[in-house]
């Protein structure tokens, strides 16, 4: 059971990571820097529970706010660049964050050992959950409360004017601007929201893994962050969830029996998926088909 719950936790955390990139993609911004915000959330929350001995909830919220703050700061210069420039700029940001944590050593004595981030040696002992007797089920529930909250919020926003505004900017900036949408506000808000969501994900990750080091937050993780919404499609938040289940559940865990061939199949399946369903696995037609299948067909 612990194994499945662990997997469900991981899927939840990666869904948050994917959603943080999803929000940005709605406005037409592609960021390969979400691993950086995820790292900021992870280290900040870890430092708060380990060094300052805060309970996990305030630590997590503080971590998310700190990540959001940095995302807000990144949002302004990022306005100047688009497309590939933004991709590279965000990679650079996230690598910078990673190198910062690579150099960060902040150790405080705790009993006969010392705790805290220890540069290359990593940040161990983020054991708030197990040390306080949380069961695997409780940890999973805790993770998913945030996943569901964020998904519900985004789903609701998507149905409201806010979603229309985000998508309008993503579809055609010029047109959006001409109907009076403030591009700066929308883009910076999306970046900040993305940072907040990634920060929550990172904070949860640090506490479920109990150990983080700079190598966790490489470009590879940022690649996964954008892979989820792209594979899942941008038609709704559920696309990202479907893609996370597809990648983490099916490709990474489900194909484990393939042994070391798994990673080769992994790349091929991504290529195949993008050729067969370029708008994502959970694109608009699929969503309609599913709705029809379960008898929920509205206007589509």
């Amino acid at each position: 059971m612990a194994y499945y719950l662990g997997l469900v936790q991981l899927i939840g955390i990666h869904t948050l990571l994917g959603l943080s990139a999803y929000v940005l993609m709605l406005t037409g911004q592609l960021s390969l820097g979400q691993a950086g915000f995820f790292a900021i959330g992870a280290y900040s929350a870890g430092i708060l529970t380990v060094i300052f001995e805060l309970p996990v909830l305030p630590a997590l919220l503080a971590g998310a706010l700190i990540a959001a703050f940095f995302a807000f700061l990144v949002g302004f210069p990022a306005l100047r660049v688009k497309g590939l420039m933004l991709v590279v700029a965000t990679i650079a940001f996230s690598e910078f964050v990673r190198l910062f944590f690579f150099n960060l050593s902040w150790r405080v004595p705790r009993g006969d050992i010392s705790v805290g981030p220890d540069s290359t040696n990593g940040f161990r002992e983020i054991r708030y959950f197990v040390a306080n007797g949380w069961s695997a089920f409780e940890i999973t529930a805790f993770v998913w409360i945030f996943v569901i909250l964020v998904m519900a919020l985004l789903w609701w926003a998507d149905r409201s004017r806010a979603g229309a505004v985000l998508r309008a900017v993503g579809e055609d900036e010029l047109a959006a601007q001409s109907v009076g949408i403030n591009l700066t506000a929308v883009k910076v808000a999306a970046m900040t929201a993305g940072g907040f969501i990634a920060g929550i994900g990172g904070a949860l990750y640090a506490h479920t893994a109990t150990y983080i080091d700079h190598l966790t937050f490489t470009v590879l993780l940022a690649t996964f962050a954008i892979a989820y919404p792209i594979l899942g499609g941008l038609s709704s938040v559920f696309g990202t969830l479907v893609a996370v289940i597809f990648i983490q559940g099916v490709l990474v865990e489900g194909l484990r029996f393939l042994g070391d061939w798994r990673n080769i199949v992994f790349g091929l399946l991504i290529i195949a998926a993008m050729n067969l369903k370029p708008s994502g696995l959970f694109d608009a037609p699929t969503a309609r088909m599913l709705k029809r299948a379960v008898g929920l067909d509205g206007r589509g």
Binding site: L30, I226, I230, G267, I270, A273, M274
Partner: peptide, 8 residues
């Protein structure tokens, strides 16, 4: 999609 396929 092209970007993602090339990552694959």
């Amino acid at each position: 999609a092209a970007l993602m396929a090339s990552i694959g």
